[in-house]
Amino acid sequence: MINRRDFLKNTVKGIAGITLSLSAIEIIDPQKIFADKTDKSKVRWVFLVDTYKCVGCGFCVKACKQENEIPYDANVTRTWVERYVITKDGKFFADTPKGARDGFITGKIDLGQGKFQDIKKEDIDKAFFVPKLCNQCENPPCVQVCPVGATYQAPDGVVLVDRKWCIGCGYCIMGCPYGVRFFHPVYHTAEKCNFCYHRITKGLKTACVQACPFGARQIGNIKDPNDPVTKIIMTERVGILKEEYGTKPQVYYIGLDKEVK
């Protein structure tokens, strides 16, 4: 049988324990969770790529790697350029040697494992370049899967990674349908294009946009109706990648082809 003394002791301990734990757990206000998700910020960064203009020089990749301190010779990059060649007999080739850091200086397609494919000029039906980068999705799956709140969408739409908070589990890398994430070779945390956040917040263009000699890359604010990029997205025919995933990517492409995934 429990005596009165023990009963009181236990009650005090129990209450102390419960209050202590409650004070430590952040009480999440449901109103906050279901808060009005239409954010009030006046900026929503978007990107526009014109694949007709891209010549595959790769200066964007070179600039991105140096601006964002991605080890130059490591085979990872925040942005890259893909080459697509479709031949008259319906075959289709795609490559991106070193992410096109050094551009495309030969017509041979890099098939990997040291194999190259030569394609004759007469056989080419269409051939073009497609720059790729993070889509800064409106519904980013990479953010949903992060167990620790290390990756998130900033109020201006850019998806960022908190290097201090990231535990390196790699779920986000698996979760991204566009394959834009990788581990940073130095910090060993998830890494991705963030539209050169340090530049756009200072009123500069991203490093890749500035480096592109042909205007194939542009960045803009979709909430500003007078922004030239917004005007193009609103009035011209633009495409997005993997629309069926419902991620609402915010990198728009002019001249996409069905082969481009």
Partner: peptide, 10 residues
Amino acid sequence: ERGYMYGWYR
């Protein structure tokens, strides 16, 4: 701002 699903961060 973006709620618990997309806006849980430092």
